[in-house]
Design a protein around this nucleic acid. Sequence first.
DNA 1: ACCTGGGGAATTTTT
DNA 2: TTCCCCAGGT
Length: 701
Amino acid sequence: MDLLEGLNSAQGEAVQTVSGPVLILAGAGSGKTKTLTHRIAYLIAREAIYPNEILAVTFTNKAAREMRERLGALLGQDSTNRGFMPWMGTFHGICVRMLRIEGESIGIPKNFVIYDEDDRQGLIKQAMKQLSISETEIKAKAVSGIISSSKNEMVGPDNYESLAQLPYQKNIAKIYKKYEKLRKVAKALDFDDLLLETVRLFREKSEVRTKWQKNFKHILIDEYQDTNAAQYHIIKLLVNDQHNICVVGDDWQSIYSWRGADFTNILNFERDFKGTKVIKLEQNYRSTGNILDAANNVITKNIQRTDKKLWTVEGPGSPVQVHSLYDETEEAHMVAERIASHVQLGARQFGDFAVLYRTNAQSYNLERAFMRLHVPYKIIGGVRFYDRKEIKDMIAYLRLIYQPQDRMSFSRIVNVPTRGIGAMSLEKFLIWQSESDMDILSALNHVDQTSTITARAKCALQTLGEKLREVQLMIDTSTPAELIKKLLDLTSYKDFINDGTPQAEDRLENIGSLLSDAQNFMSLDEFLEEVALMSSADNSSDGQSVTFMTLHAAKGLEFPVVFIIGVEEGILPHARVYEAGSAELEEERRLMYVGMTRAREELHLSYAESRMQFGQRSYNPISRFVTDMGDQIAITSPNEPQTIHEQEFFSDEPFAIGENIRSAAFGTGEIIEIDGMALTINFDNGTTKKLNAEYARLEKI
DNA sequence: ACCTGGGGAATTTTT
DNA sequence: TTCCCCAGGT
Ligand SMILES: Nc1ncnc2c1ncn2[C@@H]1O[C@H](COP(=O)(O)OP(=O)(O)OP(=O)(O)O)[C@@H](O)[C@H]1O
C-alpha cells in the first residue's frame, strides 16, 4: 500500500521528513493526526525502524487505540498484536510503563498503585486529621487542586514551603508534606507523580536515560499544544542527539491550561530544537465553508495566538444555525426532536450526531428529553464506569491485595460490607500498624498483638485479614476475573449491595460488567493499570446512539452534525472566568472554536432565555461568541413560523434517490443524490441544484 | 457502631 | 435539584 496515498503535498512532506525535528502547526481538521499516523507507518515500512524504537504520544487512550487501529490497517497488521506496535499511549500511560520497568532504581516498587482524585482527597483528609487541621478551615478538594497544580509546575513540597507566604499557604505546605509522606508509605503515586517521577528517573539515573534515548529513535507527539511542564521535561530528557522528534498541534485549540498545559511549548518548539522544519497544513478537510468562517470569526478575536489560514474546497453548506429557546427543557427537547426528525428522514444515523456542552451538569436535561422521545444516546465522560461505588469497592479490594500498604484502599473497604469496624477502630488500627513494621495485611493477621482495639473489632479485623490473605495467595496463579469472583464470594458483597432498592439491580449489573471486563486481562497489574488510567473520554461511542459530551472531551473528534447547547454568557464563556482575566476568557473562546470545528456538515448552537441553576431560575444573555460569528448564521426563535414549518416538514417521509419532487422556486425534478440534508436534484428545466432539504421546502409528487 | 433525616453547599473543564 | 456531611437516636 502506498503510504502517501490520500495525503496532500504538505502532509506528504511531513511524512517523509524523517530526520531532524519537525513541527506541524496547523488548524482544525487539516489532517494533523492523519499525517502523524501515516508518518509512523512510513517509518516502520519504509525506513525500517522497529516499532519499539518509536514513541508516539496521544492525548487520550481512545486516541491511542484509534491510532493503533489505523496503523494496523496501513501496515496490514493486526492492531491487537502489540508486538508490531510502537510505544503508544498517553504521557501518563507511557510513564507507568516506564516506571514499572525502571522505577526501582529510584525507590519506586514494581507494584506501586495509582491514586485517583478520590484517593488523593481521602489521603489529604487523613493527613489533615493527623495535623489537626479542620476541614472547615481548608477544604481537602482545594488542597488537592493546589498540590496538583504545584506538581504540574514541578514544585515539590519543600519548594512549595519556601514559596509559601500567607498562613493559609503555610498550612497547605504542611499538608502537602504530610500527604507526600503518607503517599510514599502507601506505595502509591498520584496522577501527577507519574509524570514527575519519570522526570526524576531520567534526571537522577543518567544510564537509564541514555538507554531509553538510544532506544527511541523517533518520538511523535499529538496535541502538543496541551502539554504541561513535566511532560515538556520528559520530552527534552528523552530526545537523543538525532533530534528525531515530530510534534503536531494547534495553539488555537489549547484548552487545558487550567491543568497546567502551556501552549507556549508549541510556540517555542523551534527555539528548543535548532533546525526545525515547520510544516503548515492549511486545507481543512472536515467542515463546510460556513462553519469554518463562523469558527474563524470567533477565534480571530483572540489576541494571544499565531496567525493561520484555513480554507476548504467544500461549498458553503448550510449556515450555522442558532436556536433561541425559552428554557433548558425546551432546549433539550428541541435537540432531541431535530435529531429524531433527521433520522426519521432517512438521511442520517443517530451516530452522526453529537451534543456538546460546557459543564457535565447540562447533560441532565438532555437525558430526560432524549428518554422521553426514545432517542438513543450515550454519555462520554461524567461518571466514569470505574468511578461507581460498587466498582471502586471491588477495585480497592484488588488493590489492597496487590499492594498491602495501600492505606486508602484499606480505609475504603475495611467496613464495606459492614462488619462492625467503625472510624474509631480503624484509626487505632492504622496508628498501631504504621508504628509496627508490618504491612496492612500482616498487621490484620496479627491484630491480636494490639491492646487498643475492642475485642469485637479485633475479631472482625482478624477475619478480614484471613480472607484477604487467602485471595492474595492466588494472585500469581489466577486471572483478575477469578480474583474478583473469589472476593465477591468471601465478602458476600453481592448480598450487601442487593438491598432491595431500585438501584440494586444496576449495581449488580455493574459488577457483572466489571467481571466481563476483567476477562480481557491476564494479570492483575495489567488490569489495575487499565482501571487507573482509563479516562471518561475513553468510552466508545457507537453508530446507533447520539453522543453527549463536554466540549473538552470532544477535542480531536468529528461528527457530521454537532449541537452545542447553552451558548450563553455565564456558561460559555463560563462565569468563573469573568473575574479571572483575559487569558481565561481567551481559553473559553478556544473551547468554543474547538466545539464548532468538530462539525462536518451542520452546526447548531442553542441558548435558553432562562435556565434553572441550583434550583434558581437565572436569565443569561446570548453568548458574545455568537455575536462574533458574523452574519452568515441563521437565527431561529421559538415562536416564529419557521419552527412550525419544520414541524410539518419533519412529519413527512424521508426522501430517497430517484424520487420526483416539486420545489416552489425551481419546479419539478428528480433527486439524484443525498448527502446528509443536502439533496442534489436534476430539475426538469435542465439545471442541477444542491438544495438543503430543511430549507428548500420540497414536496413529493 | 449503625442508621436516618435535616440542613447546607454545589458546578467548570480531566489525564 | 442533588448530593454530602453531621448530629442525634437506637
Ligand atoms: N489529504 C486529505 N484528503 C482527504 N481527507 C483528509 C486529508 N487529510 C485529512 N483528511 C480528513 O480530514 C479530517 C480531519 O483529519 P484529522 O482528524 O487528522 O485532523 P486534525 O488536524 O487532527 O484535526 P483537529 O486538530 O481538529 O483534531 C479526517 O476526516 C481526515 O480523514
